[in-house]
Nucleic acid binder design. Sequence first.
DNA 1: ATGGTCGTGTTACGA
Length: 261
Amino acid sequence: MKIATFNINGVKARIEALSHWLAGANADVVVLQEIKSVDEGFPRAHFEDLGWTVETHGQKGFNGVAILSRLALEDVTRGLPGDDADEQARYIEATVIGQRAVRIAGLYLPNGNPAPGPKYDYKLAWMERLRLRAAELLASEMPVVMLGDYNIIPEPRDAANPANWVEDALFLPESRAAFRRILHQGWTDAIRIRDPHATRGPFTFWDYQGGAWSRDDGIRIDHLLLSPQAADLMIETEVDREARAGEKPSDHVPVWLRLDA
DNA sequence: ATGGTCGTGTTACGA
């Protein structure tokens, strides 16, 4: 089972780039972030005609997440538990039925800038809610893949120029500590453990501004976290870096893994 | 030193 995450930065603007990547990737499940669309505005029929089952959790203008799957989905839930007043569409879960059942959590973690401020407070509160949900997912003892745009640069080696990020919500010590607090529950950072001693990257995001892509001034903020039962099934994991060089690209690239499931 | 690029849905704001 091949499972991917892709922050597409607007599904309507990215139909061609996304369809092109899907045609070559041969993924079974894809979680999308920043669809920037309400559910009724998502080009559902386009992807259904290409053979995908589509589940969306959108809102007007910003944010929004979705799941595309070639395999059957069960028990789809929308929204991160823990705050009924939170109206931002950033979280969706489903169980994918392959050779085995795998629980998938697709997330778009708040950016949090500027920090300090209310947006940063919201980011940290959201991460605490994610920590509580992550603990429940681990307790299920299922293979679980919790993946998406975490808006967290875990370590200096995950940025080409870490000094540029020291006051940014993506890299502040409190943000990184909150991410580690979740990791240390027992999750595996798939891309990192593939190459534990890497000194640079691999990056998953390059800003549109200032020629960041051409200078390879990137950061690693899209992550795949695996429960122990999922980590035991991992075969390979990769960043599809070349997607950033295509026509009208997202500022993020897809990251994926293959499970023996 | 400054401003720089996208997408959405209007011409502001979030990233």
